[in-house]
Design a protein around this nucleic acid. Sequence first.
DNA 1: TTCCGACAGTGGGGTCGCAAT
DNA 2: ATTGCGACCCCACTATCGGAA
Length: 503
Amino acid sequence: MLFSDVVAISSEVAATSSRKAKTTALAGVLRRLEPAEVATATALLAGELPGGRAGVGWSTLASLQVAAAPEPTLEIGDVAGAIDEVRAISGSGSGQRRTDALTGLLGLATEAEQRFLVRLFGGELRQGALEGVMIEAVAAAAEVPTGSVRRAFMLSGRLPATAEAALSGGEPALAEFHLELGRPIRPMLASPAETLDTALDEFTECSVEYKLDGARIQVHRDGDEVHVYTRTLREITRNVGELVALVRGLDCRSVVLDGETLALDDAGRPRPFQETMARFGAQEQRDELLHPYFFDCLHLDGTDLLDLPLRDRLKALSQVAAAHRIPGVLSPAPDDAAALFEEALARGHEGVVIKDLSSPYAAGRRGKAWRKVKPEHTLDLVVLAAERGHGRRSGYLSNLHLGARDPDGGPPIMVGKTFKGLTDELLTWQTAEFQRRATGDDGWTVHVVPELVVEIELDGVQTSSRYPGGVALRFARVLRYRPDKDAAEADTIEAVRGMLRGG
DNA sequence: TTCCGACAGTGGGGTCGCAAT
DNA sequence: ATTGCGACCCCACTATCGGAA
């Protein structure tokens, strides 16, 4: 099939807001593909680069000016091959050759195909369909239940391979996928809950566990062979020798564990997330060791446990890794759950996760069997500027620059940005207000008279080398504007710095 | 008819490795 | 040596569609 047919379908998908229409269009093209094209086309239409990221971003793309081809000639297979070539060159490290390869591909593409490729490499296809809609489309094209596709996707970790199996072999082929030692599965995620009590009310029986501020890990062991994967299924075994050694020492033949890892200080308290990430991301060993905290067991000595209820998986976890199990309580009374929450915070952790003890392991957030609760903090900050938005926020002033008050009376000190929490109504309002107060505009950012105060919710602050005050907000979002306050009543930089310890 | 779960989109701070300067 | 880029760690929130209640 011609690549231009894929691009045309993408345009059709983008043109409708109906998910059913998107699904129908995508299913239609999936059915018409040659078997060898299914994997590539599935990736392309799910907004993924076939084969994974290729070391090319917006900056590189913006620097290229390539004349478009007059007629479409590229086949789907040609595009996959060209992307693989670009990726291989990125890995070997020649910028000029990479540019040549990219230019070659774009030169064979029509204008519409070029626009598609640029958005694809940039990671922003913006056709209103990604993984979720594509799962529906694969199920429709193969005439199998969506649940079968979801499960195969969870187990294989790869949507293109899942689509290939579904379209070539139907439900029996999908049922062939199992948990394999050495192949990571997509992890189950937690969704936010309002409060601890509302989360507790959702389940008849639950587990309440610490929520740690580290990185997710999935550990596979088969005999002496150990592999460690991240939340996005990237293998990081070589980065974390201490975890490999620890898992190799567990009393079992084979196991798959799900957990979190982080670095601790000498007192056993968690180090700042930045320090955990520095250790986690570095290929060479450093002084700080990573500590694992496991909270699920998906396989033990030849038996898959995915479909068992959490309470049984936790029994297996205690059997194999009791010393490295995350702190938590089973079926606590509300007071005991609250006490555990307070204890987690007192020990420097993020909060707690509440889990349905009867739930099987299922990737994604469906069913909300896992809920997370964190304390929220707020600050009243001054709006210094706003950036123009993209996509559906085009025409609005969107991303706010936020400043804390200088107690010595100087201008506010910038501590971060946020675009979150804004409704369309608020976007409209602030765009008008900022234009009225504009003091400068570089085409990208509009600076304003620093007089509007906005109440910001955040998870905490962290040290920063980017901002002049030495601190930056973490996960900041707008709660509301404070027309009752002026800049002289905003929180000070000292108040922001005061949140560095004890969150 | 109303409610609510799942999705996509819109971006945030910070860290690493690596190539270009 | 420094800087910029790209990939990934962590992530919250709103609008919308369409099935569930």
